[in-house]
Computed example of a mutant assay.
Amino acid sequence: MVEWVRATFIEDDGKLFNPDHLHLQSASIGMLWTNVSNSRKGRRIVGQCEEGQPSGTMGKWGKARAEEQIVGWFGHVPDFILTFNADYALSCSDAEFCALVEHELYHAAQETDPFDAPKFRKSTGLPAFTLRGHDIEEFIGGCCHLVYGLRFAG
């Protein structure tokens, strides 16, 4: 699926190419399917974007276990991991699924400096990545929009 997402949304010649995602051309993206239901504040969650590097308050051993599992899945720790609900994907239209994918890609952001200029890693010259929250209730831009009534978590 990663190849389809890149070819469709990220590469310059993609059918749904969005220049807002140009920074992702050099990003490592891992994708997962789940059949586990998830909700927050009474709203169904059908997609999620996370940084690939485990974080949080799990302690050194917990982070090491999580990182080992991620490496087992993808062969390395990707910059971002996108997870999609398989049951939703089976039941939604192509346009709704594209809207979901594009929404999650908007969460996969490039860091900016205090002047809103994009940041790059000194060691590699590649973009410095971060997660982006919601603008308001939906992202503005691109060819697809949020499917109302569902929450795409970040």
Rank of each mutant, 00 (worst) to 15 (best):
E137R: 00
T124C: 12
P114D: 01
A128G: 08
E138K: 08
Y106R: 12
D135H: 13
F129C: 01
F129S: 02
G141R: 07
K122Y: 12
F129L: 12
L146S: 07
P127T: 00
H145D: 09
P118A: 04
R121T: 04
G125M: 10
C143N: 11
A109T: 00
F139R: 07
Y106P: 09
A108E: 05
D135I: 07
C143G: 09
L105K: 06
Y106M: 12
R121F: 05
C144P: 03
Y106T: 06
H103F: 06
T124Q: 09
T112L: 11
A117N: 14
D135F: 10
E102G: 06
A128D: 08
A108N: 03
E111F: 07
R121K: 08
A109Y: 01
I136C: 10
A99Y: 04
L100P: 03
C143A: 04
D135E: 10
E102V: 02
F120D: 08
F139V: 08
L146F: 14
T130L: 07
K122N: 11
F120C: 14
F129P: 11
C144T: 07
L100M: 05
A99Q: 03
K119Q: 10
L126Y: 07
E138H: 14
R132G: 03
A99L: 06
E104L: 09
F120K: 02
D135K: 07
P114I: 03
F115L: 03
A128V: 12
H145V: 07
A117C: 14
D135W: 05
T112V: 08
Y106D: 06
G141H: 04
H145Q: 09
G125S: 10
E111K: 15
D116K: 04
H103T: 01
D135A: 13
V101Q: 02
C144W: 02
H134V: 00
D116Q: 05
G133N: 00
A99D: 01
T124I: 13
A117M: 14
C98S: 02
T124M: 05
A117E: 14
I136Q: 15
L105M: 09
R121I: 07
G133D: 01
P118G: 09
G141K: 02
D116C: 10
G133H: 00
I136G: 15
I136A: 15
E137Q: 12
H107M: 12
S123Y: 11
R132Y: 01
K122S: 09
A117V: 15
T124A: 11
K119A: 07
P114F: 00
F139C: 06
C98F: 07
A108W: 02
G133Q: 00
E96A: 15
T130V: 09
C143F: 11
K122D: 09
H134Q: 01
S123W: 03
L126C: 14
H107N: 13
I136N: 10
K119N: 12
D116T: 05
I136S: 13
P114W: 02
A128P: 13
F129N: 03
E96P: 15
T130H: 04
F120P: 10
E138G: 15
K122L: 13
K119D: 06
H134R: 04
P127G: 03
F139P: 03
I136F: 08
E138I: 14
L100F: 08
Q110K: 01
A108H: 07
Q110G: 03
L100E: 02
S123V: 14
P114K: 01
E102C: 05
Q110Y: 10
C98V: 03
G125C: 15
C98Q: 05
D116G: 01
R132F: 01
H103C: 01
